[in-house]
Amino acid sequence: MNIEFLRALRDLEKERGLATEMLLEAIEAALLSAYRRHFGSTQNARVYIDRETGECRVFAQRVVVESVGDPRAEISLAEAKAIDPRYEVGDIVEIEVTPKDFGRIAAQTAKQVVVQRIREAERNMIYEMYASREGDIITGTVQRVEQRHVYIELAKTEAVLPPAEQIPGERYRPGDRIRAFILEVRKTPKGPQIIVSRTHPGFLRRLFEIEVPEIQEGLVEMKAVAREAGVRSKIAVYSRDPNVDPVGACVGPKGVRVQAVVNELRHEKIDVVRWDPDPSRFIAEALSPAKAVAVEVWEEEKIARVIVPDSQLSLAIGKEGQNARLVAKLTGWKIDIKSESQMEEIYAQEYAAFYKEQEEEYAERGS
């Protein structure tokens, strides 16, 4: 190694932010291991790289003792004083033992260390760049599909879209441009692993934030999101400004805003409903597209009974109970949906039970 090598390290510090001193210390540690490996030395030693010339030297280290027991690790006080009269028992004496062909080993080792540190720095940079974007949307190109895992090419790295995070029925082909939600960024020995999703409710939320300026400006707030990816979703929106229609803002002129999100999600149906601080009103809104006749709530248990016209019972429950499940997810309430005729029967039974109880009570009093 020489002055040019030191200049190259300083250039790396400017270009990639790798501290020269840190690199030199790492190279010295690696050279010490290489020295012991190539020359079979078990003695204590130190490798030093001159910060001005780049010259590399190896020093054996021995402890000054009165009586030498291990010549590889110890040196007598008399021998030490012959080198420098100031040495005392317990001091460390360094004797240069640089091998003749150590320069070649040093050059190879230094190159390996620098390359390794550059890779580590790049991996850390990529990790920091994407870790700070967890919960955001990225755009990339499908690189390959292996065992149903989709690998997406990004800037300087790739992301993985696992099967569980893929929209059911969606197909991915190499070369396709794709958007996804950054679910998690993990550190691994091979570099950062970026896990993305197209099914997470956060993906739907971020798409609306991108499409609706009123959300970006804080005029409209997304209060809740419920999603069954690839089939149907519901979002609850609210505005403190009475002049701003939150539902209209999200739907957009002629439905262009919501349609843009629908197209991104491969025609997933999306219900945009108005959030209301009154649970009964909010639940009635969340039932869309069905219309509620009445909503009974038990606030402590967070249970609600929704009454709908007979003709809308199946619509309110949805195919395989989907609409009811989404309403429960969106509102955070347990939902029981009944038709008007069912409620008439329930009320009739309740009244009958009540009158029977009253009759029994009167009979007991009379007796």
Rank of each mutant, 00 (worst) to 15 (best):
E88V: 04
A80K: 07
R86G: 10
E96M: 15
F102T: 04
S76A: 06
D84H: 05
T98E: 06
Y87F: 13
A73P: 01
Q61R: 15
I95T: 09
D101G: 11
V89N: 09
E79K: 10
G69D: 15
R57D: 04
D101V: 05
K81D: 03
V65N: 04
A80P: 03
Y87D: 02
A78N: 14
I83P: 01
Y87E: 01
S67M: 15
I75H: 00
I75K: 00
E88S: 04
P85A: 13
R57N: 09
V64W: 03
A78W: 08
V89T: 11
Q61T: 09
A78D: 14
E88M: 05
K100I: 15
V58S: 05
D70C: 11
P71S: 10
E88C: 01
L77N: 01
T98S: 11
E66Q: 13
I95D: 00
V65H: 06
V65Y: 04
D70K: 13
G90Y: 09
V93D: 03
V63K: 11
S76G: 12
D101Y: 09
V58H: 00
S67G: 11
R57I: 02
D84E: 05
V63G: 05
A80L: 03
K81T: 04
T98Y: 02
V58P: 01
Q61Y: 00
R72K: 07
V68C: 07
V68L: 07
P99C: 13
E94S: 15
G90D: 01
A73M: 08
A82H: 03
G69W: 07
R62Y: 01
A78V: 15
A60D: 08
D91N: 15
I95H: 00
E88L: 05
P71R: 04
S76M: 08
P85Q: 15
R57A: 10
D84S: 08
P99Q: 10
V68N: 06
A78Y: 06
R86K: 08
K81S: 10
G90P: 02
Q61N: 08
E96L: 09
V63I: 12
G69Y: 13
I95Q: 09
D101M: 13
P99I: 07
P71I: 12
D84A: 12
E74S: 01
K81I: 08
D101L: 15
D91C: 10
F59D: 10
D70Q: 14
V64F: 06
A80I: 05
G69H: 12
R86T: 12
R62W: 02
I83S: 00
P99H: 07
D91S: 11
V63L: 08
F102N: 03
A73D: 09
R62I: 00
I83L: 14
E79H: 11
P85W: 02
